[in-house]
Design a protein around this nucleic acid. Sequence first.
DNA 1: GCCGACTGTCATGGT
DNA 2: CTACCATGACAGTCG
Length: 768
Amino acid sequence: MLSLKKYLTEGLLQFTILLSLIGVRVDVDTYLTSQLPPLREIILGPSSAYTQTQFHNLRNTLDGYGIHPKSIDLDNYFTARRLLSQVRALDRFQVPTTEVNAWLVHRDPEGSVSGSQPSSGLALESSSGLQDVTGPDNGVRESETEQGFSEDLEDLGAVAPPVSGDLTKEDIDLGAGREIFDYSHRQKEQDVDKELQDGAEQEDTWPGEGAEALARNLLVDGETGESFPAQVPGGEDQRALSLEECLRLLEATCPFGENAEFPADISSITEAVPSESEPPGLQNNLLSPLLTGTESPFDLEQQWQDLMSIMEMQAMEVNTSTSEILYNAPPGDPLSTNYSLAPNTPINQNVSLHQASLGGCSQDFSLFSPEVESLPVAGSSTLLPLAPSNSTSLNSTFGSTNLAGLFFPPQLNGTANDTAGPELPDPLGGLLDEAMLDEISLMDLAIEEGFNPVQASQLEEEFDSDSGLSLDSSHSPSSLSSPEGSSSSSSSSSSSSSSSSSSSSASSSASSSFSEEGAVGYSSDSETLDLEEAEGAVGYQPEYSKFCRMSYQDPSQLSCLPYLEHVGHNHTYNMAPSALDSADLPPPSTVKKGSKEKQADFLDKQMSRDEHRARAMKIPFTNDKIINLPVEEFNELLSKYQLSEAQLSLIRDIRRRGKNKMAAQNCRKRKLDTILNLERDVEDLQRDKARLLQEKVEFLRSLRQMKQKVQSLYQEVFGRLRDENGRPYSPSQYALQYAGDGSVLLIPRTLADQQARRQERKPKDRRK
DNA sequence: GCCGACTGTCATGGT
DNA sequence: CTACCATGACAGTCG
């Protein structure tokens, strides 16, 4: 990293000197301050993918003409274009005094490096998006555009929305999904102030970052300032140039913002570029409106890193792994490093812009249009910190990848060339289509999985407001809610309702019979009661009532036993001898005889069959004891009495049946618990499913945006390429290819198509 | 009278 | 083998 800094610094110095030599005043300070937002956008762009707001805002700009909602609004956009034209004019006719800000050159890149951490600026990023797109101050901005971005920075910081740095720092893995939850939204509002502070802090870091980025550009320019060796124009008519070089040239030629007093144009540096005389209109036509007129020069290298990462992502199928890569890839992970263009690699040395040179400083230096800039390139964050890494890894990964092939299928190339613009059709149309197809496929998958497509679409439509929970609630079965809905009042309501119903018929008799029945009570009563209460909290009333029935050792609880009302189910295995006697004995008085007989009959009915049998068999102890006593005590009890075989047999049967009864109750309870647990599990799984689907949609959107970004970048780069005559290359005849050595080659399309097909086969084979 | 829920009981298998 | 438990199946009861 240190070497990189040094390299960049030297490059910056060289470039600055070079510019000064050609009479261009470089107001780096202005550049840094005014262009920081874009820079930060580039640097932190990926993280922006996690911000729901960005998605939301971007959706409005996805038409292809969108302006970065965060830092640049439409007004800025056009204003910048106008300024660009002016700057260009200045470039030609005005030779300002050479003025190099030494302080900038010597600026310590350390700070910039630290500031390059993606997490630092996200808040501002997303916030700016909100502000610019939806904020009411657009009008104000309109007039402010020329003031530079420094003010915007503050504004952005001030507007900084919630999501911000905190989220990005800790929730990279969660990605946008985290925003799904209402919590995050609430958090957003709560963190506004915090974001403001963060924004201020980030502002400090930007200059460093900008300096670094600028340094790289300058460095490159320093190199490119030198004449590029022609790379065999003949032969295959293959003209190679370093992609980095192209990008750097682009950036170098790119005006440094509205405030930039430096209309640097590479053409002015290299005489080989005749494009300067070329009418800008032609180039404009070639470029998508989206791309035109971006006054913000960004870190081209990083942009291309993004691009490469996107390419890789495209190569990979849109699957969950994508998301992982997007959000989990650590700054230094192999993936990201592989895609770093290795600015310091000597590859550039061999590149020749002689044959394929960048066009003059056109107004179209919108390589990083605001919209593109705003695109949430998840991968870029990981790429940012990347120093010039070894190009070998990159080569191994990409091999000789035909950019065109990656961007658009061969079959689409031809049509695109014919239909799209006069000379520069949209080479990435296919890519976009692919993105759409991927999304559709995923949607289909979601449908297959039972996910409502309408909901899926809603997810996209209502991305920011949507949450997995809400979605889940929308389609979550009522069965889930019903139990829980009643759960809140289950413990109380169930007991009250059950008691009310039971009291009607059984309350009077229960007191007597149940006191006996209590003896039958199950050993697990206390335990089950607690459990039942817990379950009641969960909301399963049937279970509760059931348990109530099961646990009635305490006669006081009998009031809440609903089964008493309709039960014929008399669980009174044992009746106190006194009760039995009273029931059996003739009443002393005839007056009470009727009532007592009724009571006795009722009690008889309340007695279980075993109790009846026990009473019939004159069993000297209660069924409760028979059933619940431990074996030893039970045997001891039996030994105390002289019992006949019939009695003993009955006692054993009573014990067996009693235990079995409790076992059956427990069994049923367990069964119910199992069902309830399964129900809850299903609910949880459904919730998770909905959440994952939403995340998937987010990833898809992010991917689509990144693809659009790639398309824009490709168009931008390709559109700036000029042949020896200063004319742009025809997309129908040429395509950019990423060579194995890290350079970018301009090759005939036929060759590119062939290579693209070859590239396509490999993954297919790999799948098999 | 039918149906569903609840319960008790039996048979069976496992520990 | 006995005791105990778990569970499916069946039947009875009740609303």
